[in-house]
Amino acid sequence: MFYALSVVNLEIDEIEISAEVKDISDSSGLSPWQLGMRRFRKGRLGVIALWVVLFYVLVAIFAPFIVRLLNVDPYALDRQAINDFGLPKGPLGSMSWNHPLGVEPGTGRDILGRLIYGTRLSLIIGTVGTVLSTTVGVCLGIVAGLRRGWVDSLISRIGDVALAFPSLLLIIALANPMTQRLESWGVPKGNTAKLTYILTILTIFGWVYMARLVRGQVLSLRERDFVEAARSFGAGTNHLVFKQLLPNLWPQIIIFVAMSLPGYVALEATLSFLGVGFQAPTASWGIMLGDSVRYYRADTAYLFIPGGALLILVLGFNLLADGLRDAFDPRSDRQQL
């Protein structure tokens, strides 16, 4: 959770700094963080992407309120809205004031409501998956980089093996047995067990990239004089890790988180689409996509709604990551889009 909080902090920092930057026009007394935030605010695309991402986050957090406010129930079956063949009555999947984005074929459940709840699920998977694999990756990366020797070799080889695995096949193959195993261990049945399984397996395969990045950074940072200097002032390992190394790793970590989070969201959709993830009536973008493919001739609009939501979210995160990288890693020397 530590990491998730920091991501939120970043946003808070930004608001605080905006007040500060106004009265100090030169860069005197600004930390590398503040300078980075300043550069970030100048990149327009990054800021727009940040608002897009924030919008999704707010929708996810306040999903129950929004659904009540808009009077769209994601689970209620509306037989009035579908005809005898189960297809929505009226054009564009029966879009109307009652159902702004239409209804689901076959059941008549409200698409907007399901989309809003699906945002929640996607972001939970994305956030928790990223936080878990980032935490594991950062810890192992620091240990490998600091200890070197056989510890480093061991961690790196385990990582190689994890990457070499055909992970998607494994995830699909193990889905049912592992979910049942988890349930027999006392994890609540159904979606909780599924969620636990998916998150666990995402972490097992997902930590490697982060660990490699951090390891490389630590290897280069530890040769920098300030780490050596801190040691020469009598600093212990904790001080080195938390005071010297981590502050220098944060920009890289945050950029990486922003880049990998949409991957997890898309993966959840993929798994649900393939029928490995959650099952209806759970509201998930992947389930909606899988469902809509079956009706795409009769109800094309349905296909584009979850697809569009997913596309915009992934695009938002990627542009945010680009903006952050331009701001915090100016040496990467990329032209602004």
Binding site: P32, W33, D225, F226, A229, P247, N248
Partner: peptide, 13 residues
């Protein structure tokens, strides 16, 4: 240390 440019941590005052 030899190089004062790298002997200080850039993230702290």
């Amino acid at each position: 240390f030899q190089d004062p440019l790298t002997a200080l941590n850039p993230f702290y005052t």
